[in-house]
């Protein structure tokens, strides 16, 4: 690909004429208090407040969450399938990166 600036809207440009829908937002729910927010899905909305409400109505109406985050999908920079090799393969042949040679001391909880 020629030197194309990696616009944050790449791939998820909800304003392109082909997409008649409103901008897309990613939804993260915190299941019970104290746990990390997890990706639940996405909603369309014209504003952050509307995205929050739509997320509540679509993903949290049965008491699934105690907190909701919404993030414009366009703000997410994601790796591509082309990145698979350079990003993730080099780790596989370096066993010393995996701390599996250590004996876990007694009394330490193994997850």
């Amino acid at each position: 690909m020629p030197d194309q600036p990696t616009s944050p809207t790449n791939g998820t440009d909800a304003t392109s004429p082909a997409d008649s829908q409103w901008p897309l937002w990613e939804v993260f729910l915190q299941p019970p208090k104290g746990e990390a927010h997890e990706h639940a899905g996405s909603v369309h909305a014209v504003s952050a407040e509307q995205a929050l409400q739509n997320a509540r109505d679509v993903y949290a109406r049965r008491g699934e969450a105690v907190s909701i985050w919404v993030v414009p999908s366009a703000s997410i920079t994601a790796s591509t399938p082309d990145d698979m090799g350079p990003f993730f393969d080099p780790g596989n042949d370096k066993p010393y990166r995996h701390p599996q040679f250590y004996k876990v001391p007694r009394g330490v909880r193994v997850f």
């Binding site: 829908q21 909603v43 739509n54 109505d57 679509v58 109406r61």
Partner: peptide, 11 residues
């Protein structure tokens, strides 16, 4: 008008 609002109105 859209799926999300359809669900919201039903709620």
């Amino acid at each position: 008008p859209i799926l999300e609002e359809d669900i919201a109105l039903a709620n």
